[in-house]
Design a protein around this nucleic acid. Structure first.
Lengths: 171, 171
DNA sequence: CTAGTAACTTGCATTTTGCAAGTTACATTC
DNA sequence: GAATGTAACTTGCAAAATGCAAGTTACTAG
């Protein structure tokens, strides 16, 4: 992973990808959201090689997604606990899960999100916090924010009038 | 990317990661959502090596995220047009952008989502389609769906009572 | 004292990624 | 008609990341 061009470094999506961009990271977080905290729990569930898991956990810890907490002295044992930053990442996993269910589950959905209390299945959609109206590619655009550089600002204004092309055939 | 363990293959998140798991793929889609369609547009914006871009575009096309359309005969020129499947992926990018803005923009947000018509900034949150109540790690759980295997079903019921640990310090 | 468990690390082979350069096919300009 | 430009790549090779198997440390239980 090489952080180079301004359109990667200067974009929140690009920076997010630097944190969780290795594909194992997403899977580790998914398991953590389901309650896994220990090295060997991740190792077993994911069938990931221990050296890779070690690196990923170290990277996610350095990035502030996990806190490494000793849960027992003598012998020293640790668990990886999700930080608030990581917990805020849950909506990303939720939308990814919903998308996977919609488009990558030809033989029926294997995993669903449900309400913790009454087990009612949940259908995650993305809306604006203010008016709870759905946000779609059709009604949303990206604009420059207060921290945007001159270059980024110029790039964004140059495409603001553009309407994305529509494919004739879907999936 | 090696698709092996059932907890990867059998999970919508795992399968999603197989489609868009290379970090460039997310960035390519981000640019496509902003209107890029041509090889050299992606190449310039991302400073990506052409061979890598070529592979990613081929992979995303094979996965049904792009349709390769000839927009001009003689000389043959193509553009990569988003399919409905890819357009449905937009909420994932939107939540990723929101997360990046919240946690990875110490010097102010560079890019914001806004309403296409009135330019009002949007704050994307994930809610249940039925009642528009926010979905969070606190009120949601994953449960087995109709297509779940016996193994997956057992794994999911074994963790259903579990409450994820909370980190003492956030980010 | 032997076996087991948790959490790793090390060495080495395989795979993926990245850079630079070359290719094809045409269009335009001098 | 020769040289330059553009779009969309491919090829060759070096560098980095990943994956597997085995080893390590530090204990606990029997």
């Amino acid at each position: 992973m090489q952080p180079k061009s301004p359109s990667i470094q200067e974009c929140p999506v690009g920076r997010a990808v630097e944190t969780v961009g290795e594909w194992w990271s997403i899977l580790i977080l998914r398991d953590a959201f389901q309650g896994s905290t220990r090295f060997d729990e991740f190792e077993r569930n994911l069938s990931i090689a221990p050296n890779i898991l070690s690196r990923r956990l170290a990277h996610l810890t350095k990035s502030g997604m996990f806190v490494r907490r000793r849960y027992q002295e003598r012998p020293p044992r640790h668990e990886y606990v999700l930080t608030d930053k990581a917990r805020d990442f849950f909506p990303v996993i939720a939308t990814l899960l919903a998308w996977g269910n919609r488009h990558l589950a030809p033989k029926g959905e294997t995993v669903l999100l449900a309400n913790r209390d009454d087990r009612r299945p949940l259908d995650p959609i993305v809306v604006d916090a203010a008016d709870r109206q759905p946000i779609t590619l059709e009604n949303a655009v990206v604009i420059a924010g207060p921290g945007a550089s001159r270059l980024m600002r110029r790039r964004l204004t140059s495409l603001k009038a553009m309407n994305p092309a529509v494919a004739p055939t879907g999936d």
